[in-house]
Amino acid sequence: MTILKNRLFWPVAILVALLIVNVFTSNQFITLQDGHLFGTLIDILRGSAPLILVALGMTLVISTGGIDLSVGSVMAISGAVACLLIKDLGDQNAVGSVLLIVGVAIVVSAALGLWNGSLVAVVGIQPIIATLILMVAGRGLAQLVTDGQIINVQSSPYATIATGFFLTLPVAFLIAMAAVVLISVLTRRTALGLLLESVGGSPSASRLAGIRAKRIIVMVYVVSGAFAGLAGLIYSANIKSADSIAAGNLIELDAILAVVIGGTALIGGRFSILGTVIGAILIQTLQVTVVGIGVPSKATLLFKAVVVVVLCLSQSATFREKVFGRFKIRTGVPA
């Protein structure tokens, strides 16, 4: 069947299966209280917001044939800068001041993305090495900003970014969806998507065709940095503090996994925004499901790895053909 050949069929199928499991294992899957939606489903959507943002930026970077390992450190720096500035406010509940600080943190994050993009496109350093530099140094920079301490804040407007609701839905998830819509429009309704695929598919050919590949590469790293910074704000707003060690720890691996699950080619040239969103939500759902069904904490990572391996194998057309092809031959059905 044609639908079975769609690369997104299996991620969606497994996502639906995990959600069904949560329906039976959670006390409240979804309910309406005080005009807001609550329950396991809402927790999944809210918890997936930072990963969606990071994976969205990662998708653009990978589409050009690059990689960004520094997103976790950028998250830590963004949260550290925001909480440090908010702590020094005379009134931490001043909406205008908090919004200005949020803007400053995102600009700082975009500047870090510019640093990555410049190393890759201008200096010519391999993306994995260029971003590894900031991955290591950025975590140290975040600890310098916080002086190695956890900075706590008591700002209601800032907390709203992560825990607030609008139109019954979590603000964090709505922010992520707004970013998804923006990138989808820019990449599918303009020539930008074609340019990204051209640069990722063949950088040399794109340059010969007159495409300014260096500018595009720098741009995607800037966007990746800005989205990682926004994810860092959501993370720190959720815990009302800046934790430079835990913030964004290993999120780059989940982001890359979400991108791959969504059908984006790691070698560049082909990407799927919708697939990335599905991949990010699937990963978050898997983490919630593991807790819901009572998997021991020691076996959590192993259980997650098994599910991911099954998913990746199910997406492989070659694997399905070998397995099901042999089955058809043994049962006497023409392959």
Rank of each mutant, 00 (worst) to 15 (best):
I3T: 11
I3Q: 09
K5V: 06
N6L: 09
R7V: 13
R7L: 09
L8F: 09
W10E: 03
V12E: 00
I14A: 12
V16Q: 05
L19T: 07
N22E: 13
L32R: 13
D34C: 08
F38M: 12
F38V: 14
G39V: 07
L45R: 05
I52C: 12
L53D: 01
M58P: 04
T59F: 04
T59D: 11
I62P: 04
I67C: 05
S70D: 10
G72A: 04
S73K: 10
M75H: 11
A76H: 02
A80R: 01
L85P: 00
L85D: 05
I86K: 00
I86L: 00
N93Y: 12
G96K: 05
I101M: 03
A110C: 01
L112H: 01
L119P: 10
A121G: 01
G124V: 03
Q126N: 13
I128G: 05
T131N: 04
T131R: 03
A142Q: 06
Q143W: 01
Q143F: 11
G148C: 11
I151S: 02
V153F: 04
Q154H: 15
S155N: 10
S156K: 15
Y158S: 09
A159T: 08
A159L: 11
F166H: 09
T168I: 14
L169P: 04
A172W: 02
A176S: 12
A176L: 00
A179G: 09
A179H: 00
A179P: 02
I183D: 00
L186D: 10
A191E: 14
G193Y: 02
L194R: 12
L195E: 13
E197W: 06
S198V: 07
S198L: 00
S202N: 15
S202V: 00
P203F: 06
S204L: 12
A205C: 08
S206Q: 08
R207Y: 12
Y221T: 05
A226C: 10
L230A: 14
G232V: 08
I234L: 15
Y235S: 07
Y235D: 00
A237N: 08
N238T: 12
K240F: 11
S241F: 07
I251C: 04
A255P: 08
I256E: 00
I256F: 04
G263M: 02
L266G: 06
I267H: 09
G268E: 02
G268I: 08
G269K: 11
F271M: 13
S272D: 12
I273S: 05
L274P: 14
T276N: 13
T276L: 07
V277K: 03
V277H: 08
V277S: 10
A280K: 07
I281N: 01
I281M: 01
T285N: 06
V288I: 13
G292Q: 15
G292T: 10
F303N: 03
A305N: 13
A305Q: 03
A305M: 02
V307A: 09
V310Q: 03
L311C: 00
C312N: 11
S314E: 02
S314C: 14
R320N: 14
F327N: 13
I329M: 12
R330N: 14
T331M: 14
